[in-house]
C-alpha cells in the first residue's frame, strides 16, 4: 500500500475511533451535561435527586403570584406532565412571564417547594416583529412556547 494510502487510513480510522469514543463518553455522561432537570426528571432521574439542582421548564399559566412584600414571587414550573412550585426573592429577567421558558437554580425544601436562588428566562428560536406576533395572536394561530416545543426539550 502506498504511503499516502496508509496515511489516509491512519487519519480516518483515528478520527472514527475518536468520534466513537466521544459518542460513548458523552452518552455515559449525558445526565451530567444537561444544564437543568425538568419537573418529571426530578421525580424519575437519580441525577436530579440532588439537593442543589437546576430546574427548567415553562412557567405554568396563571401560576404567577407576586407576594405582598413586593419582592417575593411564587410560580409553578411545568413540563406539561408534572409541575413544581417555586418561590424566589429577587429581580426577574425581562423576558420572564407565564408560558415562557425558565431555568432556575436552587433547592427543594422539606415541603416540596423549590426555593430558587436564581431565575433565568429561556426563549425559543422564533424571531418576528411585534406586528406579526400580534396578528398571529389575533387570528388564534399563536403557539406559545408550550405548543411549538416538544415538552421533553424542557
Amino acid at each position: 500500500m502506498t504511503r499516502k494510502r496508509r496515511r489516509m487510513y491512519i487519519v480516518f480510522s483515528g478520527m472514527l475511533t475518536l468520534g466513537a469514543a466521544t459518542a460513548l463518553i458523552l452518552t455515559a455522561f449525558s445526565d451530567n451535561i444537561v444544564l437543568f432537570c425538568s419537573p418529571t426528571d426530578i421525580q424519575n432521574k437519580a441525577t436530579c435527586a440532588k439537593a442543589d439542582i437546576r430546574l427548567g421548564g415553562l412557567v405554568e399559566e396563571e401560576s404567577l403570584d407576586r407576594g405582598a412584600d413586593g419582592v417575593t414571587v411564587s410560580f409553578r414550573v411545568t413540563d406539561l406532565s408534572n409541575s413544581i412550585p417555586v418561590t424566589y426573592k429577587g429581580i426577574l429577567p425581562d423576558l420572564f412571564r407565564e408560558g415562557q421558558g425558565v431555568v432556575t437554580e436552587g433547592t427543594i425544601n422539606a415541603q416540596g417547594v423549590f426555593v430558587a436562588r436564581e431565575v433565568l428566562a429561556k426563549h425559543d428560536e422564533n424571531y418576528m416583529p411585534k406586528e406579526v406576533s400580534d396578528a398571529l395572536k389575533a387570528t388564534g394561530n399563536w403557539h406559545e412556547d408550550a405548543q411549538t416545543k416538544d415538552a421533553d426539550a424542557y
Binding site: L26, V34, C37, G56, K122, H123, E125, N126, P129
Partner: peptide
C-alpha cells in the same frame, strides 16, 4: 438538541426551514 441547554435551538439551519422572519 441533544441536551437541556439555556441556549435555544437553531433558528436558521434546521429541518423545516428558518424560524426567523424574512425582515430579520
Amino acid at each position: 438538541d441533544w441536551w437541556n441547554t439555556l441556549h435555544q435551538p437553531a433558528s436558521v439551519f434546521r429541518a423545516g426551514g428558518p424560524t426567523i422572519h424574512p425582515d430579520m
